[in-house]
Design a binder for these strands. Sequence first.
DNA 1: TTGTAAGCGTTATCAA
DNA 2: TTGATAACGCTTACAA
Lengths: 343, 343
Amino acid sequence: MTNTIKDVAKKAGVAPSTVSRVIADSPKISAKTKMRVRAVMEEIGYYPNVHARNLVNKRTNVVGVIMPSASYAPFHNPFFPEVLRGITAQANEGKYGLYLSTGQTESDILEEVKEMVHSRRVDGIILLYSTKADTVIPFLLEENFPFVIVGRPPELLEDTVSYVNNDNIKAAKMVTEYLLLLKHEKIGFIGGREDAYVTLDHKEGYYQALCEAGVSVNEQYLVYHDEVFEGGEQAVIELMAKQDPPSAIIVADDLMALGVLRMLQSMSYDVPKDVSVISFNNVLMSELANPPLTTLDIHIYELGFQAAELLREHIQTPDLPAAARVVGHRLVRRSTTKAYRNE
Amino acid sequence: MTNTIKDVAKKAGVAPSTVSRVIADSPKISAKTKMRVRAVMEEIGYYPNVHARNLVNKRTNVVGVIMPSASYAPFHNPFFPEVLRGITAQANEGKYGLYLSTGQTESDILEEVKEMVHSRRVDGIILLYSTKADTVIPFLLEENFPFVIVGRPPELLEDTVSYVNNDNIKAAKMVTEYLLLLKHEKIGFIGGREDAYVTLDHKEGYYQALCEAGVSVNEQYLVYHDEVFEGGEQAVIELMAKQDPPSAIIVADDLMALGVLRMLQSMSYDVPKDVSVISFNNVLMSELANPPLTTLDIHIYELGFQAAELLREHIQTPDLPAAARVVGHRLVRRSTTKAYRNE
DNA sequence: TTGTAAGCGTTATCAA
DNA sequence: TTGATAACGCTTACAA
């Protein structure tokens, strides 16, 4: 039923190889045969069989997108739709297709990646997470397979793998400094998953800012939770139970920050009067929160878009040296931060 | 570099066809050769080339997922990540891969679908939207290609195409009746895109409830907007500008409802004291809204999961008659609805 | 139970 | 400028 290149060839009165050349728009084919062949293709609705093509070309024009394992609650956090949107836009421009991972566990995912690579399912891979014990990166590296991380690789591999990231250290430092300038000194820090690099970097920036300001770090003020609503709620309980609770809190993620707000409110703390809250990401809901969140916009769409772009370059130029792209950030001041006043 | 079936065959001292049979776990192969061949596959890290496979099998084990065109703001509405989550879970179970559409315009998308079908890129398709003037469905039907809609087809095709949907008429009727029972009679209706079937069905349910209750329909109370935050804001302006503004509002979508809340608050209306608001979907943020939204849970995850399941059946059994699966709904009463009191 | 060989729909090499 | 033909890596009759 489906037409093949032979059907087109027959109907156009040429050889299959000629049709193939027309598809590739080869300059060695005369304008008139091109016309004729194209007319036939149009007429009988011919589409090349991708598998036959991929088989001989050893290219697929598809990029694999690897979501974090389900334990990171990927689809619950608006971060992911937004990176996907960026990736999609760029993929669409470059005529690339998107193949999405479905694995739920870490080992599922590694197996999926192996399959994608070995069975030549995709030309390159975008990793939507970056954690310490990750096994996918070493595998990809060993296979010398094109891939880009949204986030960052371990320090040791910084010059070896390509990635698109924010400067999370600087970002966290800035956020901390902002709070410091508002005269807060008891600053709580609610990090995301401890094994995620973004969390480590946030912590580093937080430390740097405090040190430079000569404020001593109180380890009690650091807690870690998953980047979900409930994580924020729990973190607040831990933090506010300290003998000298913080007057300001830095939260790894907006969704988490909503949990923070809700829990603070339930404890009758007023935000920002009693406690200031500042978070990262600036997803849509941070604006809709009550009160609207002061947050650091990290340009999520851009992270996705650039990752896809960088990957494309790597696919096209196999031995391109690893590159890092840094996407900027921007403080969005809304209503959850306020200068400290001693009562 | 990549190993082929021949490498395995050579190393195991058998013919390529034998290896192929081992892969397929054919019962005609002796246990010992299976062992031996599998050992070799393991050893050299053999993965079958999917394209060679797909080429001869005419199957891909991949399902295509078609997002609505960008004009529907798909990635901005948490509905989509959540259906995707359901689809992913089921696809993963069935060892199916996911191929995501990237098209931004309607014609982009139609072209993508044509390519997926004709070039045999996927075995089946899930459509994440259903609108009146859609051209994808007729195409898929004509090609006799397996597909499932999340939503519903035009009435004329109800027995022809498979779909997974809520009973949106009943749902809207229930919601309206609930408001009626709370003694509201001036009930505003903020629909989504006018060309989406879900909007038509909501409207139908709304009408039915009013008619049965003997309350006359006031056409002025019906407005339509895109399912985004801003749509809700604008809708409220239109609705509350009427000479006799509604005391309760039904909103097509939670995200939109947040816009409704925000705008009402900015006009100094108290929700639910002055105006009751009830919406559909029950995405995460409806719970986090302030005040938390009364909303109709439509089990989005389930819609996705079942769509993937149904599609799988269609793929496995080519001439399976079209089936419709109805996913239930459930009223989640929170804090935006209240009995009407005349002042 | 296993091997041989043809064929899936392309592209690319070599001749013409 | 075009046409034969081999090759890509696999599956599946058909033979052995």
